[in-house]
């Protein structure tokens, strides 16, 4: 619980400081974020290697690991379809396409803006950023009440990088490689699925 609060607090402090800062800082900030992410990935790798149990789970899980990205695709599809009655302004294909960003907001929102409208692209951007933020903030709670796989599926494509540290921290190092695999597969699928849903 305190984990979630600290994560939320870091994010909110950044948000307020960013809001009060001049916009000229944006570029430096993106570069800083990139290098911080690199450092984080290295540290996560280090923690996987240092924990000698991390690699064991791959033996126990076997085929089911391959199934996890498919479960995220199916779960997201069912979930956003169920939400559709509350979104009268949007048609079903657009809602499926936004869902198929799986948190990969930069790419999915660019595709959706190009193929449909800027407004729909912005909804995709916000929705997929929210998916990442939700996973970052609620992983400690999800891991505790819904099992240690649910944060990985919630993270979607981001489970390979931005949400990986928090997943590793709260689900254990033994789930780190599964998380990377899951996120990598979804990241590859995003452009195909987004364009597929929009073409229906």
């Amino acid at each position: 619980m305190s984990g979630s609060l600290l994560i939320l607090l870091s994010f909110l402090v950044g948000l307020v400081v960013g809001y009060l800062s001049p916009a000229s800082l944006v570029l430096e900030n993106i570069i800083a974020g990139q290098y911080t992410l690199y450092l984080l990935m290295f540290l996560v790798g280090l923690s996987i290697g240092a924990d000698k149990n991390s690699l064991n789970i791959l033996k126990n899980f076997k085929l089911s690991i391959l199934l996890l990205p498919a479960l995220t695709i199916v779960g997201t599809f069912i979930g956003v379809s169920a939400a559709a009655p509350f979104l009268k302004e949007l048609n079903l294909q657009d809602i499926w396409a936004i869902g198929a960003g799986y948190g990969y907001y930069s790419l999915s929102s660019i595709y959706i803006s190009e193929i449909r409208t800027e407004a729909l692209g912005t909804i995709a951007l916000i929705s997929n950023i929210l998916r990442e933020i939700f996973t970052l903030v609620f992983t400690p709670i999800l891991a505790r009440f819904f099992g240690k796989i649910s944060p990985i599926l919630s993270g979607g494509a981001t489970s390979m990088d931005t949400t990986l540290p928090v997943i590793t921290q709260y689900c254990g190092h033994e789930f780190a490689l599964i998380s990377v695999f899951h996120g990598t597969v979804l990241t590859i699928f995003v452009p195909f699925l987004v364009t597929f849903f929009l073409s229906l």
């Binding site: 199916v74 779960g75 997201t76 599809f77 979930g79 169920a82 998916r131 999800l142 649910s150 599926l153």
Partner: peptide, 13 residues
């Protein structure tokens, strides 16, 4: 949309 997407994924997880 996020609520639907995340709920469906968490249930599957």
């Amino acid at each position: 949309i996020t609520f639907g997407a995340v709920t469906g994924s968490v249930v599957m997880g």
